[in-house]
Nucleic acid binder design. Structure first.
Lengths: 193, 193
DNA sequence: ATTAAGTCGAACAACGATGTTCGACTTAAT
DNA sequence: ATTAAGTCGAACATCGTTGTTCGACTTAAT
């Protein structure tokens, strides 16, 4: 789980990280970056980029994988099962919403080059966390049960993404976002009287 | 308001419509189409396409304009001011949600080539309809007043888009969508007790 | 200090997309 | 039936991107 077989030199490792980070940022916002753009942003020659990632597609996949892994780790660390569903959802939103935004944009940027099914499978693990919390909340009676679980999950994501867009557009301050998203989502999930 | 000065021949007019329609469909779903793709889908030579739309950017803009105009006309025809806010919102969702989906995807497809601000200004008119209904509902006390109006509008759109995505992914049947979206949105807008 | 791993720029080939031009052809309008 | 408007395919130039190769250089590891 730590480092694989091929022992890379320290600078190589550093460059890979820089490339991944730069790629993530460039994919996350703005128009599709070329390999050239990414290399420059990473402070690395284009040749070096290709030395580590054989193709644009490979890089894209690596970017997505790393972002997913990070998100999943952060969410797992929250230990959501210990909290009551509402509080769990609040925390989940708070810690994941910005990451999810860049992830979403990267996903959209990648829709042209990657297989959609495979893509969905990849960021499925992140969905699971929400799914778990929502399911628990439903069985506890604090979340509504009159709509499909899938749909509620999708709606939650949609609202979170909307908040991210509003922040990007400057209509909401980043710090205010969780305070706006939480009541919206919770109202959406409230049981029908 | 009807036809401008340059009297075009009948077949030219027909082709323009075909191109616009094909472009709308291709932009609406799937990966970015090339001018070639669009021309073929419209049953028209590439040269003809360029005869009517000087550049890719011009075509893109025309597509967006036509879609906006159609949406706006449909929503205006609903005469929403006559209905109570909740019913108005239901109708609004029902008649606009599929159009809005293709619009959104086209917008995203165009984000690379067009100026974002100009783009937002363009599909602002559609937003206005929701804004009006929501504002009326708030003053009537049937919609919540504890969150910014902008945000509520954005959330509504987000949920509608989410439904469109779910339909596209095959997880919801198109016919079921309004029945799922409406209760979700209305719950989201319900006044806090 | 030696060596292998890694970097870099420049230059290359292949490709696809955008626009443009040409000339022959078809079609709608009067 | 004449004419102007419109269409079409083929071919062209141009551009940016991807991916590769080469050789010289720098850097980390032992």
């Amino acid at each position: 789980m730590t480092t694989a077989r091929p022992r890379r030199r320290a600078d190589a490792e550093r460059n890979i990280a820089a490339i991944l980070s730069a790629a993530r940022e460039l994919f996350g916002k703005g128009p599709l970056p070329s390999m050239n753009d990414i290399a420059r942003a990473a402070g690395v020659g284009r040749v070096t980029l290709y030395a580590h990632f054989a193709s644009r597609e490979a890089l894209l996949e690596a970017v997505i994988d790393s972002a997913i892994a990070e998100t999943d780790a952060a969410l797992t660390a929250l230990d959501l099962d210990r909290l009551d569903p509402e509080e769990a959802l609040r925390r989940l939103i708070e810690t994941s919403w910005s990451i999810l935004n860049t992830l979403r944009r990267t996903r959209e940027a990648a829709l042209a080059d990657l297989d959609p099914e495979q893509l969905r499978r990849k960021h499925d693990p992140a969905f699971r966390h929400v799914e778990r919390v929502l399911d628990r909340g439903r069985q506890a009676g604090v979340f509504r049960g009159d709509l499909p679980l899938d749909w509620l999950v999708a709606s939650c994501y949609a609202v979170v993404h909307a908040a991210a867009d509003e922040v990007n557009a400057g209509r909401i301050r980043a710090g205010d976002a969780p305070g706006v998203v939480a009541p919206t989502v919770l109202a959406m999930l409230a049981p029908t009287r």
